[in-house]
Computed example of a mutant assay.
Amino acid sequence: MRPGSWQRLLLVVGLVVVLVFAGIQWRQADGGEPAAAPTASGSPVATRSATPVTSSPVTPPDRSEPPACSRLPAEVSDAVAAVRNDGPYLRPRDDGGTFGNREGLLPAKPRGYYREYTVLAPGQKFPGPRRLVTGGQPRLGTEPVDWFYTSDHYESFCQLRP
């Protein structure tokens, strides 16, 4: 290769890597739209939408609240108590971390509004699919404004009123 060719090749490869990384970040920050799908019991549950995400500058649709939770496993009460008491958590390194709402199933809020916590799922490999998601909690150990529960690792949510 001619002198300087390696430098140009490295520059082009570096630019491609940066563009790919920026595209991935942009795609992760762009949430989907919610849709209500009936469950076996006939009640709607917020689930992922098959509607493609567009990048046009239109106002996003109003993300309505997920339905109220009707029946909850007993372990949810333990997770609620841990949130209110700032522990003990099942996964101390992860519980209380930011939930990004990438699925777009919860009402749109600023980044950092939602936090997630593990809910014990007996009989399933730890940590399992159950999570408690809170919103409007300025710091750990304070009472959240919003409470949501998912039994299927963010595929659907119901609103909790503890």
Rank of each mutant, 00 (worst) to 15 (best):
Pro38Asp: 08
Asp94Arg: 11
Arg102Ala: 11
Trp26Glu: 09
Val58His: 15
Lys109Glu: 15
Ala40Phe: 06
Gly96Arg: 01
Thr54Asp: 12
Leu90Ala: 14
Pro110Leu: 10
Glu33Arg: 03
Ser43Leu: 14
Thr54Ser: 14
Leu106Arg: 01
Glu33Ser: 08
Val53Lys: 12
Ser49Phe: 02
Arg71Val: 13
Thr47Ile: 00
Pro61Cys: 10
Ala81Tyr: 03
Gly42Leu: 04
Val80Arg: 10
Asn85Lys: 10
Pro66Gln: 02
Glu33Gly: 00
Thr39Asn: 12
Val58Leu: 12
Asp95Gly: 10
Ala35Gly: 12
Ala50Trp: 08
Arg84Leu: 14
Ala46Lys: 12
Asn101Trp: 02
Pro61Tyr: 10
Val45Lys: 11
Asp86Phe: 02
Ala37His: 13
Glu103Thr: 08
Glu103His: 05
Trp26Thr: 13
Leu90Tyr: 08
Arg48His: 10
Gly97His: 07
Tyr89Trp: 05
Val53Tyr: 02
Ser56Thr: 13
Gln25Asp: 12
Tyr114Trp: 07
Ser77Gln: 14
Gly42Met: 05
Arg63Asp: 06
Ile24Gln: 11
Asn85Thr: 08
Pro73Arg: 03
Tyr89His: 07
Ser55Gly: 15
Arg93Ala: 14
Arg102Ile: 00
Thr59Pro: 04
Asp86Lys: 13
Gly100Ala: 10
Tyr117His: 06
Glu75Lys: 01
Ala82Arg: 02
Thr59Gln: 15
Asp62Glu: 15
Glu116Cys: 06
Pro66His: 00
Asn101His: 02
Ala74Phe: 04
Gly32Lys: 05
Leu105Phe: 01
Pro107Asn: 11
Arg27Val: 05
Val80Tyr: 11
Ala121Ser: 14
Val53Gly: 05
Ser77Phe: 02
Thr98Val: 14
Leu120Asp: 15
Ala81Leu: 03
Asp86Pro: 01
Pro57Gln: 10
